[in-house]
Design a binder for these strands. Structure first.
Lengths: 168, 168
DNA sequence: CTGAACTTTCAAAATATATTGAAAGTTTAT
DNA sequence: ATAAACTTTCAATATATTTTGAAAGTTCAG
């Protein structure tokens, strides 16, 4: 397989993969393109290579910057802005974990906590089941939260190394 | 807050939460409803409580069964089928991990592996970057894979207990 | 200050996804 | 074998999300 085909395949598949994860196709494709680009790319480069409109490119580049996955770089003597992706996959993963925890797990846990003390009849099975479910989710959420925090703060070698040794 | 309101709030929020995770709103709501129901529910119960159509309820119940999150139960003397959700949140989580690994991570890793040996010029920076990115993803994917396998096979007390002790 | 280079916005259009409900299919008791 | 009870399907419809591109906004060199 030729490099050009392999690059296209990677971009297409990473785009499709991203869409299972709440990241839209263009955003994942731009990310993929930047991941395999040795040099910074301008917005026009991205528009051209992926065949997307100016607005779409702009919006999704900003979103990637917002997620901490892409940085702006300035090239001296150039007027345009250029963009590069964080290439270290461990950092990419921890960054995504961190953002999703902030955007999804944390708000969910606040809701769960607000549902912990509900009025009701202790004899009512519906009441019992509701409380048991909520407290089970809360318990699980707290554990997950701790673990994700450790992961986000750790560096790869320490984390993976530790886990691997631990799990034999 | 009254139980009825709390239940509605939980169903609504679990539904919204699910949609960040590639699970559609109705599917997540049915799951939420079953999680807090002490008794098995029929399809008609679900349709009525969530105000969804027959087809929609049917399709999403089947999907939940497919994901291993809901079971059919028969109540003796009754013609109708009833449904219950797995209530143990740890089991719910491992089941989801298992399915998503199978549906998403495994196919992605196959693609990555197919992109490992591409023709190209070793001096070309684009070629180098492509190969580095692919091999970084592969390496990370393998570690993630092992870890998820351990998690799926472990039981909660062992897994969480171990991690907590380990991470102090 | 001016205008060229560049970036951002956003309403309209296109696309993708979810939902409905009536019709077709299946199962079971008699 | 029949028909009532129940389940599944699927084309049409509704809803939600993504994409476009022209217009408005910004920055900066001269």
């Amino acid at each position: 397989m030729k490099l050009a085909d392999a690059r296209n395949e990677f971009i297409a598949k990473w785009g499709a993969f991203g869409s299972h994860w709440g990241i839209n196709r263009t955003m994942a494709q731009i990310h993929a393109l930047l991941l395999i680009s040795a040099e910074p790319l301008s917005q026009d480069d991205i528009m051209e290579q992926l065949n997307v409109s100016r607005g779409n490119a702009n919006m999704n580049i900003r979103e990637l910057i917002d997620w901490g996955l892409v940085d702006r770089v300035i090239i001296s003597g150039e007027r345009k802005e250029y963009f590069v992706a964080e290439k270290d996959i461990w950092k990419v993963a921890t960054q995504i974990v961190k953002e999703r925890k902030k955007r999804e797990l944390d708000p969910m846990m606040k809701v769960i906590e607000s549902l912990e003390h509900v009025e009701g009849d202790k004899k009512d099975p519906a009441f019992k089941q509701f409380n048991e479910t909520i407290s089970g989710i809360k318990h699980f959420g707290k554990q997950a939260d701790k673990m994700l925090d450790v992961m986000v703060k750790a560096d790869e070698n320490w984390f993976i190394g530790s886990l691997m040794k631990f799990f034999r």
